[in-house]
Design a binder for these strands. Structure first.
Lengths: 233, 233
DNA sequence: GACTTTAGTATCACCGCGCTACTAATTCGC
DNA sequence: GCGAATTAGTAGCGCGGTGATACTAAAGTC
């Protein structure tokens, strides 16, 4: 179990085939959907793939992800966030040895696409993807869930104004569990995250809902004790 | 702001120089220390670097990080965890275009090293590192702090048995803020994470402390509401 | 105009958290 | 010896956030 520390290894950067792969997530009919593109090259086994490409020249990884998002959507979503690097031996459509995954979130209203190109697939109805792409998609949803209470990701999935019921529905989708209405609103109020507009939206039956916008105000630094009850593993 | 979605880009994985870079962290005299190796090659500007190398052949990224840790320490720490990929244009000692950072944690007792090789540096007294290595070190500490309440990382920085005061000190080091003793222990007790041994350790003055070991037992699934008070940005 | 549906609020009990204050067991100084 | 100092560990209190039930408000449906 214990080895002699050998002479320090002569490190060298080795040329490696690299890709940047993007998971665009948007709400769709009460679920979450992922944007996939048609695999052009015939040698690729699966019909659909995540948008991906290699960074060009001196292009930074995040810039490559942004370029991919623009090229695929025709519009700019929020800045893509990195998930992590995937460098096991699972197969990649372009046979990249290492892939760096990113996710980007778009509100429902931005999901107009030309025919014959990319298309949305509900999370539960994804077609078969290359194994590495499958892993990147799963990791994307995990990453969004994990970062949900550190970063205001939920608002990227909503239009500029929204009802509190819509906001709660987004949280429930991302967390995959129901939330308590009164508690949700109380916590939201206490954080000064949203402000009401003058508009109300009447959607079919029932009382109209007031529209809110994301407007983070005063932030109380809220450093709490340690949580031991979330430990996994 | 809006572009026509051009014809789908012809994606291709491009050869890129890649490195795996490791941040080994261990407690040292009431602070945290990082393991650095002497830069062998003269063309490298800085005298010290993080241990790094390119993955070999079909080697997975995590396996390369484990190999680096063994080669540098002469012993196996816990499995290294990935931080993320670093692909901006900050300079890397081996001029890698993309670097994948990992961190590994070792308890104090494992930090015996031969002379003339790698050495420990306190977090506050790090020598000048290549800009990308500096960024990886900072990201490593952030990642450990962020994952502290999801993963039992703190116990990797302690020997198999430890006192509760030592455990609390590790948490305070990683979080960089003081914690309340009574609250810390109450939360720990409620999580059934540790169990007492029969041993007590008398360390200089004061009442001896009981030794505990990490032994996670019954886990109550504790799904709580949403936190809005941690949002940054 | 009663019923249904959805939005939003009030109230209460509980529990986790931070705080202060206390007890317990050891070493140090004289 | 014996009290002071030092460190370990616990008890009790009050505040505030959480989740539950139950309520009011405003719209559509028949």
């Amino acid at each position: 179990m214990r080895e002699r520390p050998s002479s320090p290894p002569r490190s060298a950067a080795r040329p490696t085939t690299l890709s940047v792969d993007l998971v665009v997530i948007g709400p769709q009919a009460g679920s979450l959907a992922v944007l996939l593109t048609r695999a052009a090259e015939s040698r690729v086994r699966e019909r659909w793939t995540l948008p991906w490409d290699a960074p060009r020249g001196e292009e930074a990884l995040g810039d490559a992800a942004t370029r991919l998002a623009r090229a695929t959507l025709g519009t700019a979503p929020g800045t893509p966030e990195q998930i992590r690097a995937f460098g096991d031996n699972r197969r990649h459509p372009g046979d990249a040895e290492v892939s760096v995954g990113f996710f980007a979130l778009v509100p429902e209203v931005e999901r107009r696409l030309p025919d014959g190109g990319p298309a949305w697939f509900g999370r539960a109805n994804l077609p078969t993807l290359a194994p590495r792409h499958r892993a990147i998609v799963d990791a994307a949803f995990d990453a969004v869930r994990d970062r949900l209470d550190q970063t205001p990701l939920a608002f990227q999935l909503l239009p500029p104004t929204f009802t509190l019921t819509e906001l709660q529905a987004i949280y429930e989708l991302l967390l995959d569990r129901p939330l308590h209405k009164a508690s949700f609103r109380r916590a939201l109020q206490a954080a000064y995250l949203v402000e009401p507009t003058e508009e109300w939206r009447s959607e079919g039956r029932g009382r109209p809902a007031q529209l809110f916008r994301y407007a983070p105000h005063k932030r109380r630094d809220n450093r709490r004790g340690v949580r031991f009850d979330l430990l996994t593993g």
